[in-house]
């Protein structure tokens, strides 16, 4: 038994023949197991969808109740038989409800980790290390220049800037699902008690987090004219909004952006960012390497991101490593780093 006997690469995505299902397929498929709610992993139109309760709720919020014909709820750690394969979902620490999927067949264990991180995040269940024979890892930040500092340190820099520029609104660009709510929670942890202002586009998903019991403090929706009066306040908005007409309603705002890409100065400046905050929901280089070693796998497949460097690193350590070059993933972070055209 080997990894490629269990999972194969198809145009729709990773396919498991033993269970006749796809994982995070990019095309409508008869049966899909979904790791998490980001749009590049969770698409609508599949025949049957199996995912955690939170991920199913996020998909329903985004696509409407008819996003699939049949839903099956997965509980972290619970083993379920699908065809020949035994499948279980485990926390990935990426966003609310995110999961790694463990497939077991004839004693061989393979883990599809989806997107994951190891850093501090009060809004979701922390990553769980799974021993396995083969590990499939993302590589969004698969270069050794990507090392995310402690998110609390970055939030401290945001609050310092609010104190240094009490007359300027601080617009924090953050991806609507996951990053925005994590920022809210981290800012609260740092002791900021004022209301935090939210762009309309992230309201519903934030309400969903609240309904799931995540504490986020008081948030307010921005009404047009108020924008000019928000000096010294924190405003969270989608990254593209910081370059929109919408942002011009603020007087001389400080534009911040919470993303792992902010580690690279060129990226930050290209996006017109004045206060780059290196906060990511993806593993950094050190976490990617540590995680691969933690799983004690002999084989590692690298998907979306900078595959080459991680494959090189793994090969140097005697692992069988190969890049998958999957198409269609990672857009959530790619688009957000670019200036809105």
């Amino acid at each position: 038994m080997a990894a490629h006997d269990i999972l194969t690469q198809t145009p729709a995505g990773l396919y498991c023949q033993a269970g006749d299902f796809y994982i995070d397929p990019v095309r409508a498929s008869p049966r899909a197991l979904i790791t998490h709610g980001h749009a590049d992993h969770a698409r609508s139109g599949h025949g049957a969808v199996m995912a955690t309760r939170e991920t199913l709720a996020i998909m329903e919020l985004r696509y409407g109740a008819d996003f699939t014909t049949t839903r099956q709820m997965a509980t972290y750690g619970e083993k379920v038989r699908i065809g020949e394969a035994q499948v279980s979902f485990h926390p990935a620490g990426h966003v609310l409800g995110s999961a790694q999927i463990l497939i077991e067949l004839a004693g061989y264990r393979i883990v599809v980790s989806g997107d994951y991180k190891r850093g501090h995040d009060p809004t979701c269940t922390p990553f769980e290390v799974l021993r396995c024979d083969a590990f499939i890892s993302e590589a969004t930040f698969g270069l050794p220049v990507f090392r995310h500092p402690d998110a609390r340190h970055e939030v401290g820099r945001l609050l310092d800037s609010c104190r240094a520029f009490p007359d300027r609104a601080h617009l924090v660009g953050a991806y609507s699902l996951g990053k925005a709510q994590r920022m809210l929670a981290l800012i609260r942890e740092a002791g900021w008690q004022r209301p935090i202002w939210l762009h309309g586009a992230m309201e519903k998903i934030t309400e969903l987090y609240r309904a799931e019991g995540v504490a986020l403090g008081e948030t307010r929706k921005i009404v047009g004219k108020e924008r000019a009066k928000l000096g010294g306040e924190i405003v969270i908005c989608p990254p593209s909004a910081t370059r929109d007409l919408w942002a011009r309603g603020f007087s001389d705002p400080v534009v911040a952006f919470a993303s792992g890409w902010m580690r690279i100065r060129a990226r930050a400046r290209q996006g017109g960012v004045q206060l780059p905050l290196v906060i990511s929901d993806h593993a950094d280089w050190d976490e990617l390497c540590a995680t691969i070693l933690d799983t004690r796998c002999q084989e590692v497949w690298i998907t979306h991101g900078a595959e080459d460097a991680l494959v090189h690193w793994a090969t140097q350590r005697g692992l069988h490593a190969r890049p998958l070059h999957l198409i269609g993933y990672g857009e959530e972070d790619d688009t957000e780093a670019e200036p809105a055209a």
Binding site: L143, V145, R263, I264, A266, A309, H312, W313, Q316
Partner: peptide
């Protein structure tokens, strides 16, 4: 201090020597 292949890939990506070294 670092693997030359990883350094070359990183420098190519970042494009600035001081920044690449500071990060790696």
């Amino acid at each position: 201090r670092v693997d030359p292949v990883l350094f070359a890939m990183s420098y190519d990506y970042v494009g600035d020597l001081s920044e690449t070294v500071a990060l790696m």
